[in-house]
Design a protein around this nucleic acid. Sequence first.
DNA 1: CGACGGTTTGACAATCATCAAATACAGTGG
DNA 2: CCACTGTATTTGATGATTGTCAAACCGTCG
Lengths: 241, 241
Amino acid sequence: MTLNAHAIHPPHSAQARISGLATLSEAEHALLDRSTRNRRRVSPYREFLSEGQPVPRPLLLLSGWACRFRVLSDGRRQILGFILPGDLVGLCRTDHAIASASALALTQVEICEMPGTEPTPTPGLAQAYALAGAMDDFYLLNQVTRLGRLTAYERIADLFLEMYDRMELAGLATDHEMTLPITQETLADALGLTSVHVNRTLKALRRDRAVVLESGLLTFPDYAALAAQVDHRAYRAPTVR
Amino acid sequence: MTLNAHAIHPPHSAQARISGLATLSEAEHALLDRSTRNRRRVSPYREFLSEGQPVPRPLLLLSGWACRFRVLSDGRRQILGFILPGDLVGLCRTDHAIASASALALTQVEICEMPGTEPTPTPGLAQAYALAGAMDDFYLLNQVTRLGRLTAYERIADLFLEMYDRMELAGLATDHEMTLPITQETLADALGLTSVHVNRTLKALRRDRAVVLESGLLTFPDYAALAAQVDHRAYRAPTVR
DNA sequence: CGACGGTTTGACAATCATCAAATACAGTGG
DNA sequence: CCACTGTATTTGATGATTGTCAAACCGTCG
């Protein structure tokens, strides 16, 4: 798969990331370029996609971090997954779909609308969307397992590892080091914990030197050991025989 | 959407369920019929799909209950979702995909391979797969929210409501009543709890008359009230304007 | 400087897990 | 028909994990 190309030419932008997912035609490249020129800024903690609303076309996150989430009637909030630069939101399998979750900027964010694949055929883009969707599916399964069967300690470690994997794939992190621009409160909402407990568990992770986390910089002193400890799963690309 | 047709003609078989998801051509109907003739039986607690293995084509569950799951290296098990009669497993967005979870029969089960959509174009089937996939996605988000933000009491109630919704959509339940052919141990693995705690919580649900559950028959004395109490979300079909 | 959002800490309570054993229930073979 | 077996449910006693409430601390920004 074209995923391996990342090892050689890491994408240096959200567009590059998308075009790395499949082989795009000249026309598709042009279309992608045109789409990304029309950007929209969203401030931190602003909702830019609402559960229950129709989703006409997918959105591409050009910069910043965002998340998908749901809120319960009494205010409890669950973050379903994070949206990192180069990620797509609102990928729907069907036309005229209704958003089954809302989306929120976690930092200052830039987004743009992506072309649909419907009227004019864009096989390359469709393939890129499919691969991006498959990865989303995979990360959602990870999320279920984290919430259902991991302890607080393991949940945080596993989520951090997954974030690093994704940032590395996107060409935004190397050497087991990345910036983590989100609050402990946000982590708590993603991990089914309270911010107080996240804080205490982070302390334990630091004590064990499982992670180093200071002023928004996250480092794994021993990535492999931590991954083994929490039975971390990384995404496996489709196989071409 | 054709989903509304269920209200009028509830499907009486797994095939009928599939053909209710989209408008199939004559050829596609024939193809579907041919596929379902070639069935495979699987005994309870037998794995019929393994994480890490390639998934050539989707499987249709013709009868019985199954689930998707993952196991951790130390034996902890998480059920990711249930597979009910008429459901598809191994729906992949990309070709040559690798299963990101295993699947297991929970009761005696019949499955069959479904045609791929690749060589010969089958737009109706593709649409049916897309809709089935969209519903799977939705139920997975429900699962994340359950595990992350609901109490044990709410988790069980919400899962039961969802199971009923799906069984009703499949034409296998009415009148807020259904058969529940799974053990408390299985429920525990789905809900991130222990079987002991599931048992105690079921007692509480019975005490409150939130559910009636005896010898595999599950009834909701007041479905609407319970749904409101746990902020239950039902799948919303794509909208055609 | 003060205000504000985020982090950190403490004391205590609730939820849920663990371990162990008793009971119920269905199937099987004598 | 009945003992026997294995699996599922139920209950009790106890402990660990995580939540709640409250306050202190810290850095940033106006």
